[in-house]
Each structure stands twice: as C-alpha cells, then as structure tokens.
Amino acid sequence: MVMMHVLDTSAIILRKAIYDDMVTVPEVVNEIRDENSKLYFEIKNIRVEDAREEFISEVKKAAQKTGDIYKLSETDIRVLAKALEYNATVVSDDYAVQNVAKKLGLKLEKILQKGIEKEFKWIRVCKGCGRRTEKEVCEICGSETRLKKVVKG
C-alpha cells in the first residue's frame, strides 16, 4: 500500500514533491508565487482538497495544548487537518507543524532541515514578574508576556 503524503508550501517550492500519492490544500496553492514552482506543482500531479472542519478543529485543540497555536498559520492548520483526515505523512520543515503532527500521532518527512527530536510546548511567561499566563499582558503586573519553549522529556 502506498502511503499518502500531505505537502506544505515549502515542499513544492523546494521541489521535494517526490512521492507517489500526494495531496495538499488550496491555501498552499495560493502561497505558490513563482512561475517555476507553479509549473513544478502542475507537472507533479498533486491533488488539491479542502481540509474538513472536524479535522481543523482537532488540529486547533492539539495546537492549543502544545502552544503552537501562536505559531501556526491557517495554511499550516489546514495541511495538518488534511494529514489527520487521511492519517498521512506530513511533509514540512516547519517545527511548529512537526510538533503538532507528533502530538497528533502523524508521521513526518523533513525537507532540508534536521527536524524536531522531541516534542515541545510553548507557554506564555511575563517579562516583568516571570509568572505563567495565557494572556499577552500579565494580569498581575501589567507587563508584556513572551512565548517560551519548554522541551518535553
């Protein structure tokens, strides 16, 4: 059985669409700007399908848990949703995409980067008092918060 691969934009731009069964979402196609990448996309026979709402919702829940919801674009979320729908392999170098894919139990293919080795979580920490919060401004001291990566395991 041939494993399906769901491609993000960089897989197409970097000419790494090398699999037998490939699919992506319309939002990825909209991000392809240069003529060479458009031509490459067309000759590679990559299917384009919309992500389904129930899978988008599941991806957003997972991204909330990891904190990657602050890092993922709408296109990233839809790529992950399509991969979740088919239990497919995600082809991406984006660390936030990889982290949420791991959280969802999806397989990953890297493009050029090394890829993540361990799952991580993003948390918001106040720049002033150091408290953890969900807000962009600390409700205790009023300072801005920043995202901090916490590696699991």
Rank of each mutant, 00 (worst) to 15 (best):
Met4Ile: 03
Met4Lys: 14
Val6Gly: 04
Val6His: 10
Leu7Ser: 01
Asp8Cys: 04
Ser10Ile: 02
Ser10Ala: 11
Ile12Phe: 03
Ile12Asp: 04
Ile13Gly: 05
Ile13Val: 04
Leu14Glu: 14
Ala17Glu: 00
Ala17Gln: 02
Tyr19Glu: 00
Asp21Pro: 00
Asp21Tyr: 08
Asp21Lys: 15
Val23Lys: 14
Thr24Pro: 05
Val25Leu: 02
Val25Ser: 08
Pro26Trp: 00
Glu27Lys: 10
Val28Ser: 02
Arg33Met: 09
Arg33Glu: 11
Arg33Phe: 01
Asp34Phe: 00
Asp34Thr: 04
Glu35Arg: 12
Ser37Val: 01
Ser37Ala: 11
Ser37Leu: 01
Leu39His: 12
Tyr40Glu: 02
Tyr40His: 06
Phe41Asn: 00
Lys44Tyr: 06
Asn45Leu: 04
Ile46Lys: 15
Ile46Tyr: 12
Arg47Ile: 14
Glu49Val: 02
Asp50Ile: 11
Arg52Glu: 13
Phe55Lys: 10
Phe55Trp: 13
Ile56Trp: 11
Ile56Ala: 01
Lys60Ile: 12
Ala62Cys: 07
Ala63Trp: 13
Gln64Met: 15
Lys65Cys: 02
Lys65Thr: 05
Asp68Met: 11
Ile69Cys: 06
Leu72Arg: 12
Glu74Arg: 14
Thr75Val: 01
Thr75Ala: 04
Arg78Ser: 08
Arg78Tyr: 06
Ala81Pro: 06
Leu84His: 13
Tyr86Val: 06
Asn87Glu: 14
Ala88Arg: 12
Ala88Gly: 01
Val90Tyr: 08
Val91Met: 03
Val91Asn: 02
Val91Arg: 08
Asp93Ser: 09
Ala96Gly: 12
Ala96Cys: 08
Ala96Asp: 07
Asn99Glu: 11
Lys103Leu: 12
Lys103Glu: 14
Lys103Tyr: 15
Leu104Thr: 05
Leu104Gly: 06
Leu104His: 08
Gly105Gln: 10
Gly105Asp: 03
Leu106Asp: 06
Lys110Ala: 05
Lys110Arg: 09
Lys110Trp: 00
Gln113Ile: 10
Gly115Leu: 10
Gly115Asn: 10
Gly115Pro: 09
Gly115His: 00
Lys118Val: 08
Lys118Gln: 12
Glu119Pro: 12
Lys121Trp: 09
Trp122Pro: 02
Ile123Trp: 10
Arg124Tyr: 04
Cys129Ser: 13
Gly130Phe: 06
Arg131Lys: 13
Thr133Phe: 12
Thr133Trp: 10
Glu134Val: 13
Lys135Gly: 01
Cys138Leu: 12
Cys138Pro: 14
Cys138Val: 08
Ile140Leu: 12
Gly142Met: 03
Ser143Lys: 09
Ser143His: 06
Glu144Gly: 15
Thr145Val: 05
Leu147Ala: 15
Val150Tyr: 07
Val151Phe: 09
Gly153His: 14
Gly153Phe: 13
Gly153Ile: 09
